[in-house]
Amino acid sequence: MKTTNLLCVIDDDDIYKYAVKRAVKVNKLTNKIITFSNGEEALEFFIENLNKNENIPDVIFLDINMPIMDGFEFMEEYIKLKPSVGKKITIYMVSSSIDEADVKRAKNISAISDYLLKPIMPKELANLINGTK
């Protein structure tokens, strides 16, 4: 099974982050996983590591509703940085929201690969990380 070098989860729900980490570890889906509790923490990390591709994730699972900087605010700032990022990053917006406005807004951001509803089952997680969705 193919593994992703670096996976990033940006979400304020510690239980969800633990579940993703556990599923990733059990299924050996990545070499490393990094987590952030809000978009601002993640954005600061990206800015500090723009010239270090080995520290930039291959796949990001991004929550919408978080304190300080939500997922949509993160994406607004990420899009400004994207030309400076030296690799392709697959971003999935992951939320428990079924609000059609959230779904439509996420689908209108070209840098977001898909909008997914929580919880993500381990098999779906594997397919997403391996790019076989």
Rank of each mutant, 00 (worst) to 15 (best):
K17F: 12
T30C: 08
A23M: 09
I33A: 03
I33W: 03
V20Q: 00
L29K: 01
V20A: 06
I34F: 06
S37W: 04
T30Y: 10
E40L: 15
K25D: 04
I34L: 14
F45R: 03
E40P: 08
E41C: 12
I33G: 00
V20M: 12
I34W: 03
R22F: 13
K25A: 13
R22N: 11
T35I: 07
V24N: 01
F45E: 01
E44D: 10
T30F: 09
A23Q: 07
E41V: 09
A42S: 06
K17I: 14
E44F: 13
A42I: 06
V24G: 01
L29D: 00
A19R: 15
N31E: 12
K25Y: 12
R22C: 10
N27C: 06
A19Y: 14
K32H: 14
G39L: 06
N38I: 08
E44Y: 14
E41R: 14
L29C: 03
S37K: 10
K25V: 11
I34V: 14
K25F: 12
N38S: 13
I34Q: 07
N38F: 12
I33F: 01
L43C: 01
N31F: 05
R22V: 11
V24I: 13
V26T: 05
T30A: 12
L43D: 02
F46K: 05
N38P: 14
A19G: 09
K28F: 03
K28Y: 05
Y18V: 12
L43F: 09
L29P: 01
F46G: 01
V26A: 08
V24T: 04
S37H: 08
E44H: 13
T35W: 05
K17T: 10
Y18D: 05
E40M: 15
N27L: 10
F36H: 04
A19W: 11
A23R: 03
L29H: 00
F45A: 03
T30P: 02
K32I: 09
V20H: 01
V20F: 11
Y18C: 08
S37Y: 06
V26P: 00
K21S: 13
I34R: 04
E40F: 13
N31T: 08
T30L: 07
E44P: 02
F46Q: 03
N31W: 06
V20W: 03
L29E: 00
F45Y: 15
E40R: 15
N38H: 15
E44L: 09
S37F: 06
F36P: 02
R22Q: 14
A42L: 09
L43P: 00
G39K: 02
N31D: 09
F46W: 07
Y18M: 14
K32S: 14
L43I: 04
A42W: 11
K28T: 06
G39E: 02
V24Q: 00
N27V: 05
I33Y: 01
A19I: 15
F46E: 00
G39T: 05
G39S: 04
V26W: 02
V26S: 00
I33C: 02
N27H: 11
